[in-house]
Amino acid sequence: MTQFEEGRFRQGLIQFIFDRTKESFSESDDLFASGLINSLFALDLIAYVEDQADIEVTSELLSSQNFRTIDSIVQMASLMARHGGERVRAGD
């Protein structure tokens, strides 16, 4: 993805989560409370976000509220993608 497109990223993310979990989450559902993040699937989700938004998800990013909901993931990715076209590191 040369340029980050928020709408496309959001749609892709929703589809990815549905494909892998067979569960429909609303964009404000707490993914942590669902147990989704604390499972084998979590690393795949992180890898997906890193790949699609061209960012590196560090512990710092993950510890905060960034991965709590689909909305917050999109917001984080969007913010980081705007910070620079290159792969940006959290906390830098």
Binding site: I37, N38, S39, L40, A42, L43, I46, S59, E60, L62, S63
Partner: peptide
């Protein structure tokens, strides 16, 4: 690693 999330992160890696 991220506090509370080790099973999905550090442990997996």
């Amino acid at each position: 690693g991220p506090h509370g999330l080790a099973l999905a992160t550090v442990v997996q890696t």
